[in-house]
Amino acid sequence: MGAWSEEPFGNDTAADWGWELDDAESWEFVTEVLRGFLAASDADEDTEAIVVAAAETVAHGLGSPTQDDSYTESVTAFVERVGAPPAETVTLARDALRVVRDDGSASAELWAEADDLDAWRDALGRINAALSR
């Protein structure tokens, strides 16, 4: 995962996934990512990056984005097409974000090694707050 910031779409994996939203026709695309992650026994940092991007996409759908820039243009267009997310997707996003934020996650370990764990956790905290409004 090539990361340039702790923002949800601040890495290659999440940015690439964001472009896939151009072809998505419903929230089921996002819901499947979140459901699949929560059903898995373990995940790598790339999967977790996609989960964070999916959670940010849900925040956009709720009208509370934490990142709004050129990297989220596909997210904005997706939300304009499909509207607000279903309640189940919001719940899944909060649950998945909680798992990614845990000390034992692959992403937490990478951010700790880079001495940016606090900044990354702050970014996830902002997403979580947006999902809880």
Score class of each variant (00 low, 15 high):
87 A>N: 01
94 R>S: 06
95 D>N: 11
92 L>E: 03
79 V>K: 01
51 V>D: 08
104 G>L: 06
95 D>E: 14
84 A>I: 00
117 L>M: 07
96 A>Y: 00
130 A>R: 13
53 A>T: 06
97 L>H: 08
115 D>G: 01
117 L>R: 15
120 W>G: 04
77 A>Y: 06
110 L>I: 08
88 E>M: 03
98 R>V: 11
91 T>F: 04
122 D>G: 14
106 A>H: 04
80 E>K: 03
83 G>C: 10
108 A>R: 15
96 A>D: 00
129 A>V: 11
62 L>S: 08
116 D>H: 11
118 D>M: 03
105 S>D: 09
48 E>P: 09
95 D>H: 10
108 A>S: 15
76 T>P: 01
99 V>H: 01
89 T>L: 04
72 T>H: 08
53 A>I: 10
66 T>C: 08
83 G>D: 06
57 T>I: 13
129 A>K: 14
79 V>P: 09
90 V>A: 02
49 A>K: 01
109 E>G: 05
96 A>R: 03
67 Q>R: 09
85 P>M: 05
71 Y>W: 14
81 R>N: 08
92 L>K: 01
121 R>K: 09
69 D>M: 06
85 P>F: 10
90 V>M: 01
66 T>D: 05
59 A>Y: 13
65 P>R: 05
72 T>A: 06
113 E>T: 15
106 A>G: 07
118 D>P: 01
100 V>E: 04
94 R>D: 00
93 A>R: 05
94 R>H: 00
89 T>Y: 05
104 G>A: 12
63 G>A: 12
121 R>S: 12
79 V>G: 05
84 A>P: 01
87 A>W: 02
73 E>I: 08
125 G>K: 11
57 T>K: 14
99 V>N: 00
76 T>R: 14
123 A>W: 08
51 V>S: 12
59 A>R: 08
122 D>M: 13
121 R>Y: 04
51 V>L: 07
78 F>D: 04
126 R>T: 14
84 A>D: 06
126 R>E: 15
98 R>T: 15
118 D>W: 02
126 R>G: 10
